[in-house]
Simulated scan of single mutants.
Amino acid sequence: MATVRYFAGDVDASVLFYTRHLGFALRQQFGPNMAILDRGDLTLWLAGHQASASRPMPDGAIPEPGGWNRFVLEVTDLPSFVTALQDEGVSFRNTMIEGPGGRQILCMDPSGNVIELFEAAAS
């Protein structure tokens, strides 16, 4: 099982996004500052502004959402999945691309964290 931590500007909005659009289940929430969600073998920790993981680093840098690191969710029928998300107002960072391994697109959660949606090429 893998665990990923994402920083969230609004933990409640992020919980709603991941459970409503991407099939995660809420395991536990600690007020407005921390939530733990599961999807298969992936555990996602969402940390808000007051979570201990959000404390400034020794050099003064403050952890924040966004960036290019991401986890990958494998889906079937990526075009239909993307259309359904677009109909629900989910934001995307790019358009779908296709390569020898399959198709992919990057969607964003409410805090700007990136999730790669991937459909493997038929073998």
Rank of each mutant, 00 (worst) to 15 (best):
A13L: 03
A13S: 09
S14M: 05
S14W: 03
S14E: 11
V15W: 02
V15F: 02
L16E: 15
F17Q: 02
F17W: 09
F17Y: 11
Y18F: 15
Y18M: 04
T19C: 06
T19V: 02
T19A: 00
R20W: 08
R20M: 09
H21S: 04
H21D: 02
H21A: 04
L22F: 10
L22Y: 09
G23R: 05
F24Y: 11
A25K: 13
A25R: 14
A25L: 11
A25G: 12
A25C: 12
L26D: 08
L26A: 10
R27V: 12
R27G: 09
Q28N: 06
Q28F: 13
Q28M: 12
F30M: 08
F30R: 11
F30C: 04
F30V: 08
G31L: 03
P32S: 14
N33K: 04
N33L: 03
M34R: 11
M34C: 08
M34V: 07
M34S: 09
M34W: 15
I36P: 00
I36F: 15
L37K: 00
R39K: 10
G40A: 08
G40Q: 11
G40P: 06
D41R: 09
L42E: 06
L42T: 13
T43Y: 05
T43V: 12
T43K: 14
L44I: 06
L44S: 06
L44D: 03
L46P: 00
L46C: 00
A47W: 01
A47K: 01
G48D: 05
H49Q: 15
Q50F: 05
Q50L: 10
Q50K: 11
Q50I: 00
A51H: 15
S52L: 13
S52W: 07
A53Y: 02
A53E: 12
S54P: 06
P56R: 10
M57S: 10
M57D: 08
M57Y: 09
P58M: 05
D59T: 12
G60H: 02
G60T: 04
A61E: 09
P63Y: 04
E64M: 10
P65M: 09
G66K: 01
G66C: 01
G66S: 03
G66I: 01
G67L: 03
W68F: 09
W68G: 08
N69Q: 14
N69F: 13
N69D: 05
R70N: 14
R70S: 14
R70Q: 14
R70L: 12
F71V: 14
F71I: 13
V72C: 12
E74D: 04
E74W: 00
E74N: 08
V75F: 09
T76D: 14
D77A: 13
D77H: 11
D77Y: 04
D77W: 01
L78T: 11
L78C: 09
P79E: 15
S80A: 15
F81L: 04
F81G: 00
F81K: 08
V82Q: 03
V82G: 06
V82C: 06
T83K: 13
T83D: 14
T83H: 12
T83Y: 02
T83L: 14
T83G: 07
T83M: 10
A84C: 00
A84M: 01
L85C: 02
Q86S: 09
D87M: 08
D87E: 15
E88Y: 10
E88F: 07
E88N: 15
E88V: 07
V90W: 06
V90A: 08
S91N: 11
S91K: 14
S91D: 13
F92T: 04
F92V: 06
R93P: 01
R93T: 05
N94H: 13
